[in-house]
Every structure is written in structure tokens, then in C-alpha cells.
């Protein structure tokens, strides 16, 4: 065994995996069967805040292509389904815009089918819809996608289980510690009550932060419905790291 000084002893703080933060999902949520063999059971180890996590990948991504944020124009023809605009701002905890950050999305098509070899749902593939997009936020932290409203789809979690319609979102923010993957839902979905993934966030208001709102202003007449989805990432400011005393 290694020797530990008093300073090290103080750092040996642990946290049980069944966390009590009701605004974030726990690792183990038995109603979502997939967590049972994948949630760690040993206590999490508290990691002190250092340069390693207040930095993160802000460079090194190739700029997304011109049409990467328009999922309706990635093929020869128009995809089936309801065309929608999904837009919003990416903010930090202080409400300041997170600029120039990569936003990646993926989703099922209008029939609820992913263009993925593992998806065996017998709904039709849409040859004009891949279901993946990406963009960078602008100076106001603003992003915008044009896509198709995804369909609900059945899954094997429990008898007659259906996922509410959702779009997967992946964001980096300014630092390793601000990394977030989430799902955006649609207002008024009747499937929320039976979905363990959505309900793994036990606080109702926090669940509400995953639901987009209908946005008439963003709606394009005769063409597409608008939905607003603002995202708040961890990380308060980008104050330069103080020089180490080492």
C-alpha cells in the first residue's frame, strides 16, 4: 500500500453511485433495463478541478459543411414527414453564450426508423433521410437545424414500450467538464409517462428543460414548424487558468 500524507487523506472523498441529484439521471435506473449491467457499482472518486478538465476540445474540428445543418437536403429528393426548424442558444450557467461550439444531432426518420444496421423496427427507411446533422454555434451561442419531425418508435425495454419522439444532441462547450449528450423532446408528447429514459430525470422542472417549445416566430409559413430548444452547459466562465506555482 502507498503512504498517504494528510493532504491526500482529505482528498479521499467518495460518492455513492446512487446520486441524489434529482436534476440529472442516476447511473443505475432499474426501470431502464440497459442500466442494470452498465451502471458502475463502486463509489465515484471525486476528481479535483484542474487544467485537465477546465480545458477541452475547442479546436481541431473541421468546420461543418454548408448543408450539415439541413437534414432535408442531404439527398437527391425531399424526405418524408413534417419539416421542422429546431433552433436555440447554447449558454453557460451564467447565461452567457457558448460560442463556436460543435453541436451534433442524430435522429429517427418520420416513421420512427433509424438508418442504422442495428435498428430492426419494421418501419420504412427513407432513402432521402440520413438523420444526422452538425453545426457550430455563432457569436450569440445560437444554432439552427432544419430537419424532419422524428417518429416515436417501439423498443424492448418493457411490454409495449415506446420512445417519445426525440432528437439526440451532443455538445462540447468550452471544457471537458461541460461535455453533454442529451435528447430533445417535443411538447405535449403523450408517451412521456411510460418512458424510463425521460423519467430517469426525477425532477419535473429538470425534465421540462429537455422539452422544446413550439415557436411560431421561427415557423416558416407554408413550409416548416419551429421548435425552440435552449441548452445550458456546465462551466461558468473562461477566466484564464492562474499560473501554477510549481
Amino acid at each position: 500500500m502507498q503512504q498517504h500524507g494528510p493532504a491526500q487523506e482529505q482528498q479521499r472523498e467518495i460518492l455513492v453511485p446512487q446520486e441524489d441529484d434529482l436534476e440529472q439521471p442516476p447511473y443505475l435506473y432499474p426501470g431502464y433495463v440497459g442500466t442494470r449491467l452498465r451502471a458502475p457499482k463502486e463509489p465515484l472518486i471525486i476528481l479535483p478541478k484542474t487544467l485537465s478538465d477546465i480545458t477541452g476540445p475547442v479546436y481541431g474540428h473541421r468546420k461543418p459543411g454548408e448543408l450539415d445543418n439541413d437534414l432535408t437536403r442531404q439527398h437527391g429528393g425531399e424526405p418524408q414527414g413534417q419539416k421542422i426548424i429546431v433552433h436555440g442558444r447554447v449558454l453557460d450557467g451564467d447565461g452567457r453564450p457558448v460560442r463556436n461550439t460543435l453541436v451534433e444531432i442524430w435522429q429517427a426518420n418520420a416513421a420512427g426508423r433509424y438508418r442504422h444496421k442495428v435498428d430492426q423496427h419494421p418501419a420504412p427507411i427513407d432513402p432521402n433521410f440520413s438523420g444526422a446533422g452538425r453545426t457550430l454555434t455563432d457569436d450569440d451561442g445560437y444554432y439552427r437545424f432544419i430537419t424532419i419531425k422524428p417518429g416515436a418508435y417501439p423498443w424492448q425495454n418493457h411490454y409495449n414500450a415506446w420512445r417519445p419522439a426525440h432528437i439526440h444532441f451532443s455538445l462540447f462547450g468550452r471544457a471537458f467538464r461541460s461535455r453533454l449528450v442529451t435528447q430533445m423532446y417535443f411538447p405535449g408528447d403523450p408517451l412521456f409517462f411510460q418512458d424510463p429514459i425521460f423519467n430517469s430525470v426525477r425532477d419535473e422542472k429538470a425534465r421540462g428543460r429537455m422539452i422544446s417549445s413550439f415557436d411560431l416566430e421561427a415557423t416558416i409559413p407554408e413550409e416548416a414548424l419551429g421548435f425552440r430548444f435552449d441548452i445550458v452547459l456546465e462551466g461558468r466562465d473562461a477566466t484564464p487558468f492562474e499560473r501554477p506555482h510549481a
Binding site: Q24, P25, D94, V181
Partner: peptide
């Protein structure tokens, strides 16, 4: 401060 957007699984796809 603003409350954080909750995390959700990446799912199988």
C-alpha cells in the same frame, strides 16, 4: 444561475 440541461443516454444508434 441557470439550471443545467439534464443528460440522457446516447442510445444504441
Amino acid at each position: 444561475s441557470l439550471r443545467l440541461t439534464p443528460s440522457q443516454t446516447v442510445g444504441p444508434y
